[in-house]
Lab assay of single mutants.
Amino acid sequence: VEPFVCAQCRTDFTPHWKQEKNGKILCEQCMTSNQKKALKA
């Protein structure tokens, strides 16, 4: 199985991968920080 790479921070290690609607693969940490930024905006 090919390891995923986060589209935002380029890490290849995370407990959980998330896929955005646009198809980008993000690590759990980037997904969480993006959600917090969206709530602040």
Rank of each mutant, 00 (worst) to 15 (best):
V1F: 05
V1C: 08
V1E: 11
V1K: 13
V1T: 05
V1L: 06
V1I: 03
V1S: 01
V1N: 05
E2T: 11
E2H: 13
E2A: 02
E2G: 03
E2F: 07
E2L: 01
P3H: 13
P3M: 14
P3A: 14
P3W: 04
P3Q: 14
F4K: 06
F4E: 06
F4Y: 06
F4L: 10
F4D: 13
F4C: 15
V5M: 09
V5G: 03
V5K: 10
V5R: 09
V5A: 12
V5L: 13
V5D: 01
C6H: 01
C6A: 00
C6G: 00
C6S: 00
C6V: 00
C6Y: 04
C6P: 00
C6N: 02
A7W: 04
A7Y: 03
A7G: 14
A7R: 11
A7C: 14
A7F: 11
A7N: 12
A7T: 13
Q8E: 15
Q8K: 15
Q8N: 15
Q8Y: 14
Q8D: 15
C9V: 01
C9E: 04
C9R: 01
C9L: 00
C9D: 03
R10T: 15
R10M: 15
R10A: 15
R10W: 14
R10L: 15
T11F: 03
T11Q: 14
T11H: 14
T11R: 12
D12M: 04
D12L: 04
D12R: 12
D12H: 11
D12S: 12
D12Q: 04
D12F: 06
F13L: 05
F13R: 06
F13S: 05
F13Q: 01
F13M: 13
F13C: 11
F13P: 11
T14Q: 07
T14P: 12
T14V: 12
T14I: 03
T14A: 05
P15H: 00
P15D: 13
P15T: 11
H16N: 02
H16F: 09
H16W: 10
H16Y: 09
H16G: 09
W17L: 11
W17C: 12
W17Q: 15
W17K: 14
W17H: 10
W17G: 13
K18Y: 01
K18Q: 07
K18T: 05
K18G: 12
K18H: 13
K18M: 09
Q19L: 08
Q19R: 09
Q19T: 02
Q19V: 13
Q19H: 06
Q19M: 10
Q19D: 13
E20W: 02
E20D: 01
E20M: 11
E20G: 09
E20Y: 02
E20F: 00
K21H: 15
K21L: 07
K21I: 02
K21P: 13
K21C: 10
N22W: 12
N22K: 11
N22F: 02
N22T: 11
N22V: 13
N22G: 14
G23C: 06
G23A: 12
G23Q: 14
G23L: 12
G23D: 14
K24G: 09
K24E: 13
K24H: 10
K24D: 05
K24S: 04
I25Y: 03
I25V: 02
I25G: 03
I25E: 06
I25P: 11
I25M: 07
I25L: 05
L26N: 01
L26K: 04
L26R: 06
C27T: 00
C27R: 00
C27F: 03
C27E: 02
C27Q: 00
E28D: 11
E28N: 10
E28R: 02
E28G: 08
E28T: 10
E28A: 06
Q29V: 02
Q29A: 05
Q29G: 05
Q29S: 05
Q29D: 07
Q29W: 03
Q29L: 08
Q29C: 01
Q29P: 06
C30A: 01
C30L: 00
C30V: 01
C30I: 02
C30H: 01
M31V: 07
M31T: 08
M31H: 14
T32F: 06
T32K: 10
T32Q: 05
T32C: 05
T32L: 02
T32V: 06
S33G: 09
S33Q: 09
S33W: 02
S33V: 07
S33A: 08
S33I: 08
S33D: 10
N34M: 02
N34A: 07
N34Q: 07
N34D: 12
N34E: 12
Q35M: 05
Q35V: 02
Q35W: 01
Q35Y: 12
K36C: 03
K36R: 05
K36E: 07
K36V: 03
K36P: 04
K36T: 09
K37H: 05
K37E: 12
K37F: 10
K37G: 09
K37Y: 06
K37C: 03
K37M: 11
A38Q: 01
A38R: 05
A38V: 08
A38G: 04
A38T: 15
A38K: 11
A38M: 05
L39W: 04
L39K: 09
L39G: 13
L39P: 11
L39S: 11
L39D: 01
K40M: 08
K40L: 01
K40Q: 04
K40S: 08
K40P: 13
A41K: 07
A41T: 06
A41W: 10
A41S: 10
A41M: 03
